[in-house]
Amino acid sequence: MDLHLFIKLGISAILGLVIGLERELKRKPVGLKTCLVISIVSCLLTIVSIESSYVFQLKDHITMDPLRLAAQIVSGIGFLGAGVILRRGNDSISGLTTAALIWGAAGIGIAVGAGFYWEAILSMALLIVSVELIPLLTVFLGPKQLREKEFVLQITISNAENIDDVISAIKQQTIDIKTIHIKDVDEKHHLLKLKVAVDQKQSTTDVYYFIRSIPSVTNIEIENI
């Protein structure tokens, strides 16, 4: 086996390692080992696809597409991506970034296997910048919607007449109410479910303590979206 093929697999492993570490540090379901496997095997299959097309063409005069296996890698990664996309009880969806990154790890493996080293390195760097640096910049420089984080609040109120007072008190703070859902728990208690947005710099505990201090609130639950 030629040395440059070992070099291809090594570069692919290093680039996949960087992507995997980024996911591992964030405790995502697809981490270091998965990204390494995807990147290395994608590179390997691309090498096999390219090399075999020339081998069979020379021996048996068979015309083959040198990237036929690489095309199937892109489709096959979709099954892994679908497995990490989760829908939570509050109708929010998580795992899309992880699914996109494993697709990116496969693309980087294919690029290295095909011999596009610098393109693969640049792509890996841009991927890390996109998922790490850009979100931080939007917190300070982006529009208001990108500088906000959303919560789901479930507030138990002791009296139905106090619901308007609670909503008014929340609106007086820097809390933007997106949706309101009211449910009767029993004759004396009522559940107020709110989807709200606050500034990224405002902590979850500050929101909790403020709402808990409202006299008619007997119970509160906060969930990050």
Results as ranks from 00 to 15, higher is better:
150 E>R: 06
181 H>P: 02
71 A>W: 04
108 I>G: 00
6 F>G: 12
197 A>S: 15
212 R>S: 11
21 L>I: 14
61 H>V: 02
161 E>N: 14
194 L>T: 03
216 S>E: 12
201 K>E: 12
167 I>L: 15
89 G>W: 01
30 V>G: 11
40 I>W: 00
172 Q>I: 02
175 I>R: 02
211 I>H: 08
63 T>Q: 09
5 L>G: 01
35 C>D: 14
141 L>Y: 12
191 L>P: 01
137 L>F: 15
208 Y>D: 04
148 E>T: 05
157 I>F: 14
51 E>Y: 07
89 G>N: 08
77 I>N: 09
99 A>Q: 04
141 L>D: 09
218 T>S: 15
147 R>V: 07
99 A>D: 11
47 I>V: 15
157 I>C: 09
192 L>E: 00
118 W>K: 11
214 I>W: 02
25 L>Q: 07
185 V>C: 01
150 E>K: 07
12 S>A: 15
81 G>R: 00
149 K>V: 12
128 I>E: 11
143 P>F: 09
125 A>V: 14
120 A>T: 05
36 L>W: 00
178 K>A: 05
150 E>M: 10
78 G>A: 12
141 L>W: 10
4 H>R: 04
64 M>W: 04
132 E>Y: 07
97 T>F: 03
24 E>P: 06
87 R>Y: 10
173 Q>E: 13
5 L>V: 05
69 L>D: 07
43 C>G: 13
102 I>E: 00
142 G>H: 04
165 D>W: 07
106 A>K: 02
111 A>E: 09
66 P>G: 05
183 K>F: 11
41 V>C: 12
164 D>G: 10
225 I>A: 02
77 I>A: 07
207 V>F: 03
118 W>E: 14
205 T>H: 05
91 D>L: 09
207 V>R: 02
143 P>T: 06
89 G>R: 05
133 L>C: 13
119 E>V: 13
15 L>P: 00
155 I>F: 09
116 F>R: 03
126 L>V: 12
199 D>M: 08
96 L>T: 01
